[in-house]
Each structure stands twice: as structure tokens, then as C-alpha cells.
């Protein structure tokens, strides 16, 4: 039996544990809500996490394909990039999977002598973390980009006819609505 089969067999247990430890990065009241509410529209964060980690997990089993794994990473990282997290906190959820896999499978892995394979799996997680870092940066850059575009959109006509108003463009001006 390969480690892939083990991971496949115990998929549900591992995903559930991963979901749980990921939720622990949120305050208790929040993680309770994220776990409990099943409607994907009332609980979009919870449902994005569920969807995301399941796709990422599959990619770890199959071997990492950047195209395939990116949308799933994006699902979670786009959210965490705007929540109250430092970059390492935002992306740390990926490394949590290592602990979960060991928790669930370590005994069996040693028993079957699959440590080398475990190592492969763990380095796949590292590879994914690198992709995740790029996605995180793209999200952050997008935020800065949006700030600039929005101000331009808001005053589009005026900028077209430059010099019609004073005081524009220092990013602090009252151009609301």
C-alpha cells in the first residue's frame, strides 16, 4: 500500500481535522459559526474553506499541478489576505496539514515503512505553499491597484476634462459617492 492510498482512505478524517485546526486560527465564536452554518451563502468563508482544502488535498495526492491547485488556493487565500492576519498567519494553514497527516497516519506510516513517501507528500505541501505565497502577493497587490483605479473611476469625467476641480488626487479628498 502506498501513502497515496492511505491518504485516500482517510481523506474524510484528515480533511475534517484540517478544517478544525484551520478554524482555530479564528476566535472561538467565529470558528463555532464557521463550523456550524452549512448554507454556503450565509457562511461563505466556511464553505470556501471546505471547497478549498478539499481541492488542495486532491492536488497533494495527485502531484502538484499549479493550474489545478491555484483556484482552490485562491478560494481561501483571497479571503485570508483581507482578514486580520499577518502573511504567515494567512498562509500557515497549509503547514497545519502536515501535523494533521502525522496525527492521523503516523503509526501506520511507520508500520508500513512509508516515511520516505511521507517526506514526498510534505515537500508537495511546501511546493504548494510557494504557489500560495504568490497568490497572496497578487491579492495584496490587487488591493493597492483597486485603490488607485477606484479614485480614477470616481472622477472619470473630470479627469477627462482636466483642471476642472482643484484639490483632486491626493487620495484623501472627499470624492465619495
Amino acid at each position: 500500500m502506498e501513502i497515496k492510498d492511505l491518504l485516500q482512505d482517510r481523506r474524510e478524517v484528515i480533511l475534517k481535522k484540517w478544517f478544525d485546526v484551520l478554524l482555530q486560527t479564528y476566535p472561538e465564536e467565529t470558528s463555532r459559526f464557521l463550523r456550524k452554518e452549512k448554507d454556503p451563502f450565509s457562511n461563505p468563508v466556511g464553505s470556501a474553506i471546505t471547497e478549498g482544502i478539499s481541492g488542495i488535498y486532491q492536488s497533494i495526492l495527485d502531484g502538484v499541478d499549479i493550474k489545478e491547485v491555484s483556484p482552490f488556493l485562491d478560494r481561501i487565500i483571497r479571503i485570508r489576505a483581507v482578514q486580520d492576519f499577518t502573511p504567515s498567519q494567512a498562509l500557515g494553514f497549509l503547514f497545519l496539514l502536515k501535523g494533521v497527516i502525522r496525527d492521523v497516519l503516523l503509526k501506520e506510516i511507520s508500520k508500513r515503512g512509508l516515511d520516505e513517501e511521507l517526506h514526498t507528500i510534505e515537500s508537495r505541501i511546501d511546493d504548494i505553499a510557494l504557489i500560495a505565497f504568490d497568490i497572496y502577493m497578487q491579492c495584496r497587490e490587487k488591493l493597492y491597484d483597486l485603490r488607485a483605479t477606484e479614485l480614477r473611476n470616481m472622477t472619470y469625467r473630470l479627469l477627462e476634462r482636466a483642471n476642472l476641480t482643484k484639490d483632486l488626487g491626493n487620495g484623501q479628498e472627499g470624492v465619495s459617492d
Binding site: Q24, G99, G113, D115
Partner: peptide, 24 residues
């Protein structure tokens, strides 16, 4: 095999961060 096991860093070492928010 046992060698590989000792080589593999513990996940906690990979990310020595407490991800949980303060309990206050």
C-alpha cells in the same frame, strides 16, 4: 527508513507560530 524519519522536520518547527488568537 528510520533515518528519513529523523530528517523530516516536525511541522511545528516549520511554522513556529501560534495561529490561535489570544484567549481574552
Amino acid at each position: 527508513m528510520a533515518k528519513a524519519k529523523t530528517k523530516t522536520p516536525k511541522p511545528e518547527e516549520l511554522a513556529k507560530i501560534d495561529y490561535s488568537p489570544p484567549e481574552k
